[in-house]
Write a protein that binds this DNA or RNA. Structure first.
Lengths: 338, 338
DNA sequence: TCGCTTCACTTAATCGCGTAACTGAAGCGG
DNA sequence: CCGCTTCAGTTACGCGATTAAGTGAAGCGA
């Protein structure tokens, strides 16, 4: 039998079995027909190599078996890591994960989200660039959305996996204070529009409480730029000219930039300068010294996000739509007593 | 005007303008109609917030504006990096990149490729797990496929971006030999079925020519496993009990594992042991010491792959369907004279 | 003025499948 | 034996577009 040029359609199966297309459609779903015809249809379908066209099915039924996964910015190593984990998690549950990258652009983020919705993805996981955008509302009412890392406050989402940033910030600053640091530089990633992440507020609060000085600086995720910023920090010191003894980076990527800048300046991380990261990327353990950072349980995050999405898709109620991840300080060698 | 519950359809625009759906369809494409009606239709469409349903359009026309990007294994940091770069590249050309992860499974790889084809992606970029699978042929005759890193030898692809592995291997082994190394361990990533990558052949040839001993060992990409393998290598030495003075890793990920194992064993990379990587992941520059590795020009790869795919989609002929990337040895601090 | 082309649309078919509504026969209790 | 339910299919329509083919009017040269 020569390989068919075009794909086999439902109609062809129907003709082969002498049934109507409807009967075949029902049969393949196992409802509405007798056991024998179902068997007969299945056999014919297998012989003809029939597989339902997902596009036609999506148009008719409005459903697919795909889940959209929208990354705010795939430049960020940790997001790459997270997306890969989510993809695997969903695939394990027999759903295809379509991963898209908004490239840090809020406009594009919404455009892609709409595109995904229009593709009839059954669910949408998003690690948002701009969680406060109004556009999320329209999207969330057309498809179950699970957000990761931030609440989409203007939308009714199907679930959230959040990080207890305050706890993480407190833990790190307390840890550093305990090691004797009194002047700390904090590097926070800043996309084009993240107007409402209260990270710097938390930092200031904690610093006040602990009686230490903390200077918050924005810093891009991309390694080259992060290195450039770190270079300035290590050279120039703070606003008043005094140099920090520790740098607390809100993403491990940024911390890598600090490592690079430190090496350039012949400063040894874990001796001349202390560095702490924020999200435990796998690479962090192989640095010299290994990066002290926060472990949020990536696997758990991916699992939970997938679980929430799948539950929403299947119309199941879940007990808790919001998971708040607690950080664990993964103490390695990059921060030392001063 | 209340936000419409459902999306506006072509028919609604037609009714609003008193035209037929066909006229509207033509008008929006700017063919077949008068200037005035085109303008009128555009205005009405904008007012009603009409956007064509991509699913319906795909069913009717068989086209979308999406390109599938299939990663062999997103565990691999370099592939994460590559996929992100490709995604950005395509997005810059106004096409959506759907990134999928085969997770290193050849079966799944083909299944996902078919899924993508059925989604009517206009093109497919793939960094294959199993380039010799017969299934690629069927896929490539339904959609233009551009492969990256390996030839899909059983399929007629629209283009290829290959790496001159032999040149890379020669360059590294010559470099290491020049530094005085005579016994080198080579760690190659081995998925479930990569029967036909002649890397070890190249290694043996080069080793013979250079008069050195090279032992080739398979090694997973994942950092934990890579570290475990490296641990054994550093402890046990080669088959005859002698320890290599250099480790040549066929991916930077694996090299990171060697760094970790070396640190555990209190060996200093770039002094007690030399390490060379293969693909210049951004992180490689921030390691201590920075990893000596091969630079294949990632940006160029992403650009070229996207260019080939887009050309094929638009039916343009390209002069050279095959690009062979030459490596540049990026000499940093991890390999030293012995 | 006739016939032919061009223009500006409309009609209608199609893409491949899902599903509500209908039909005819069988089963069955009363 | 009748009316009702159930079963096993069928008919027919819808999903929301694209697009080939058809149609009537206007334009135009001879």
């Amino acid at each position: 039998m020569a390989r068919p040029r075009k794909r086999t359609t439902l109609r062809e199966v129907a003709e082969a079995t002498g049934l109507s297309t409807a009967a075949v459609s029902y049969a393949l779903r196992g409802t509405h027909v007798s056991k024998e015809t179902e068997e007969r249809v299945r056999k014919a379908a297998a012989e003809l190599g029939y597989e339902a066209d997902p596009i036609a099915r999506a148009l008719a039924s409005g459903r697919t078996s795909m889940v959209g996964v929208l990354a705010g910015d795939l430049q960020d190593l940790w997001q790459q890591h997270l997306m890969a984990a989510i993809g695997r998690e969903l695939l394990a549950g027999d759903r295809y994960a379509l991963i898209l990258d908004a490239g840090g652009d809020p406009q594009r983020e919404l455009a892609l989200a709409k595109q995904l919705r229009d593709q009839r993805v059954d669910g949408l996981l998003v690690s948002p660039v701009d969680p406060s955008a109004a556009g999320w509302a329209q999207i969330a009412e057309a498809v179950p959305v699970v957000s990761i890392g931030d609440s989409l406050r203007r939308a009714r989402t199907a679930g959230e996996v959040l990080f207890d940033n305050r706890a993480g910030i407190d833990a790190v600053l307390e840890y550093l204070t305990g090691l004797g640091h009194r002047r700390i530089t904090v590097l926070t990633p800043t996309g084009p529009s993240t107007p409402d992440r209260p990270a710097d507020v938390y930092v200031r609060e904690a610093a006040g409480r602990l009686g230490i000085a903390a200077e918050v600086l924005p810093c891009a995720q991309e390694l080259g730029e992060a290195t450039a910023v770190a270079r300035r920090v290590l050279r120039d010191g703070g606003a008043d000219g005094a140099r920090s003894t520790a740098v607390f980076c809100f993403s491990d990527s940024i911390a890598y930039g600090v490592y690079a800048a430190a090496a350039e300046a012949s400063l040894k991380v874990g001796r001349d300068i202390s560095v702490v990261g924020f999200d435990d990327h796998p690479v962090s353990q192989v640095l010299t010294p290994p990066l002290t950072t926060l472990d949020w349980g990536l696997t758990g995050i991916a699992e939970e996000a997938a679980r929430l999405a799948v539950a929403a898709i299947e119309g199941r109620r879940v007990r808790r739509k919001r998971m708040l991840c607690a950080p664990r300080l993964s103490e390695r060698g990059s921060a030392v007593r001063v």
